[in-house]
Design a protein around this nucleic acid. Structure first.
Length: 198
DNA sequence: ACGCTGATGAAG
DNA sequence: TTCATCAGCGTT
């Protein structure tokens, strides 16, 4: 039975949310079309003390969403050309989020191929920038509560993920974050063919 | 190994 | 107001 993850799901410790998001379905509604994929890889960004987290710069226009309510989308532009999708976690006023890094495509694959301009299934959603391309996610979605009406939400379809299926590693692309760079805060499904490059 | 690209925050 | 930096990707 599919059910939309409620706000309470996100209002918990970021690492628990991150691990539990693996295997869930990211659902994107664009017009009357639907694009979905199973989450295979995520990263946790936790608080102002985490030097890899944008919130370590303090509360600014950009990081405002992370300081707000859980269960909202935090979308930003990186390297001038790619968008990244995060979901805000934990309590209000504590800035934290989970970056969605990779998906296994399920529905709307032809649409994803169009958005991405490639035919290869494994190149559609295997990276945070790629999956935003494939699902047509931009800063227009920044700050929206994850819900059906917003055109973006996450569902539980009772897919089972065992503890042994989850692997952790240091986060990608955060070498600048000093001691925080080695925190094993990347979570992914061990046997998935749909992961970002290592 | 490198260039693309523009928002962001820090420096001045 | 400029400047270096960046939670990535594709091509070389």
């Amino acid at each position: 039975m599919k059910k939309v993850l409620p706000k309470q799901f996100y209002e918990r410790d970021t690492h628990i949310v991150a691990a539990e998001l693996l295997g869930k379905i990211l659902v994107r509604g664009v017009g009357d079309k639907k694009i979905t994929g199973r989450i295979t890889e995520v990263e946790a960004y936790v608080g102002e003390d985490d030097l890899a987290c944008h919130a370590s710069k303090g509360r600014t226009l950009r990081t405002e969403v992370m300081f707000g309510e859980a269960g909202r989308a935090y979308v930003y532009l990186i390297y001038g050309m790619y968008h990244c999708l995060n979901v805000v976690t934990d309590q209000k006023a504590f800035p934290a989020a989970v970056l969605i890094r990779a998906l296994e495509p399920i529905e709307g694959i032809d649409l994803m191929k169009n958005y991405r301009s490639t035919e290869q299934l494994t190149r559609l959603t295997t990276g945070p920038g790629k999956l935003c391309d494939a699902l047509a996610i931009t800063k227009k979605q920044n700050g929206v509560p994850l819900s059906r009406s917003a055109g973006i939400h996450i569902e539980d379809d009772d897919f089972t993920v065992r503890k042994n299926d989850i692997v952790t590693s240091p986060r990608i692309g955060v070498d600048y974050a000093k001691h925080c760079a080695q925190y094993p805060w990347r979570y992914y499904l061990k046997d998935s063919k749909f992961l970002s490059r290592t």
